[in-house]
Every structure is written in structure tokens, then in C-alpha cells.
Amino acid sequence: MMSEHTGRDPVPQPLLRVEGLRVAFGPYEAVRGVDFSIAPGRVLCLVGESGCGKSVTARAVMRLVEPAGRVTAGRILWHGGESAEAMDLAALDSRGRDMRALRGPGMAMIFQEPMSALSPVHTIGEQLTEPMRLHLGLSRKAAEERAVDLLARVGIPNPRARLSAYAFQLSGGMRQRAMIAIALACSPKLLIADEPTTALDVTTQAQVLDLLAELVRELGMAMLFITHDLGVVAQLGDEVAVMYLGRIVERAPVFDLFDRPHHPYTQALLRSVPSLRGPRPRRLAAIEGLVPSLAALPPGCVFHPRCERAAAGLCDRDDPAETATADGLRTVRCHRVEAFAS
């Protein structure tokens, strides 16, 4: 299913467009046909519960799922190159020169656990300057100057001294900031953030989110932000894509999505998040049942066993196609969307 609607998007020319992406791990498909696009200076949040394929999607864009997984279908079109032609990353060798050259100056990634993403035996300074010297051809001196600027920019106090620090000497929040600085080292056009604040405390999370929002605005990067936390989405995203079992079930600008969620899954997710405002609910709204395993997907719409609005003979038989709303800003994958969307 190609996404015709992107042509009518009011946002500028996308930097990255993913079409019909499928990723398989052995016999199981973790991502089953995903379409989205991101424009420079915009934040797209991929949101969903564990196992929905959001992290795999992000890693597939970086071509980091191999060799355990495989991109089996779809195109990952990169418009960030010099030529006017888009480059299909899905067709590149995941370990080849083109792909390696793209990681760093093209796209960079930050992870949930900075401790496992940072090298324990190299100083922060070494990890910061190495990609700059490799990709940007800076001298040691120039790279170090830029490293100090970057550390200061991500809010690390006393940056020059921190160049010689090791990851374990920093606190969790500082580590995450250091990782962001490393990701920014080569001024990437796209930053992929995989649950970067999940392991952080709420006050530290707030600081890191503010920082990321500022950086996107200031540097004009695009950001693909993976999270399970709808609160974070509301604070950070420009566009939201909700994933369930390897598919995007609904995609919309953030205000539209929170104001008028169309897909029953989105609606249920939003209801089950307790807010700090408004009347205190006596019970939380839960989605009954469990997420089916990828090994035994239900027939028809994969959400129908848990869906309040599932229609017998339709939802349990036919897989719904992605439909775009009239304004082209929103896509929903649901048979019954006309029946209840305003």
C-alpha cells in the first residue's frame, strides 16, 4: 500500500520516506508494511506497546537489524543526499560503504540505555571526536573544540573537564546528554531516538526532552522518536504514528490525534493513560485481553479480538487497508473508521 497522501502534505519535502517496510526475524515478521515520512525540523513519534515493532522500524531505517533480522520488502527513501534523486537505503548493503558513510553525518541514533551504547573503555572526548575526524576530516584540535561546544550545548557543566571522563563516571542524565552530543557530532540530518528517556527519572526526563525539542528547532534536524509514553508524545511530537503488531494503525498530526483519535486502539490507549488533571477516575480504562504473539496473529484486523467496535464477519475476516482522511493529514487502518469518526 503506497502512501498517496504524502504528496498532499503541507509539510516541506520529506527527508526520509519509508514505504511498505517489512522486517522479518526468521519466520516472524516484526514489521509488516509500514509507511511514513519525516521532514526536516519535524518530530515524528512512533508510539506503541512492547513488541509492536517500533524499535525494529527505527533500527531498520539505520539498517541495524541485520544479521538477526532482514528487511524483506519496502523502500527507505533518503532525500538527504546531494543529488535530487532519492537513495533507497533498503537496497544498500547494510554493512557497505554507502550505508556507513550515511551513519553519522546523515543519521544518528540515541538509545534507551546510554551505558550499553557508550564505550566503557574510551573517554567521552575520544568517542566525540572520533566520528568528527573520520566523517568531517577535522583536526584533533578542531574536533576537540567542537566537542567542548557540543557538550556545553547539551547542558553538561564544565565540558572541557568532561572530555576525559569515562561513561561510568557520569550520572544517568549526564550519560544520556553525552550520548546526544555524540549523536550530534557530525550534525546529522535525522536523529533517531529509541526510548531515550525511559530509563531516566521524571525530572531528568523533562530536561532531556526540553533539550531534544530545542535541538530540533535550532538545528533543523528531523527526529524519529520512539516511545511508549503518550505523555512524552504530547510534549514533543509534531506527528504521531501509533503502531500495533508491526503496523501503523493511525498516523496524524499530534493535536488531531490527541483531540480526535480515530482508531479504536489509539482511543483505548489514550483512555488508559491517567492524567494529573481533571477528575480522578475511579477505574482506569483498560484494553481487555493481551497482545497476540507474532507467531499466532489473529485473522483479519489484528486488533479485532480486543476491539470494542469489531464487527463480526468483517473485522475478523478482512485485513483493513490504510485510508487517508479528506485533508490527507491522517491515515487510519480500520474498517469501521467511517462509522464513528466525526
Binding site: 483498560a286 481487555e288 485481553g289 493481551l290 497482545v291 497476540p292 504473539s293
Partner: peptide, 10 residues
């Protein structure tokens, strides 16, 4: 409480 659930994983 919720109705007894069907076994999920297997």
C-alpha cells in the same frame, strides 16, 4: 475482576 483470560503465548 476481568473475565478469565484465554492463554496467550501458547
Amino acid at each position: 475482576s476481568a473475565a478469565p483470560l484465554a492463554p496467550p503465548v501458547s
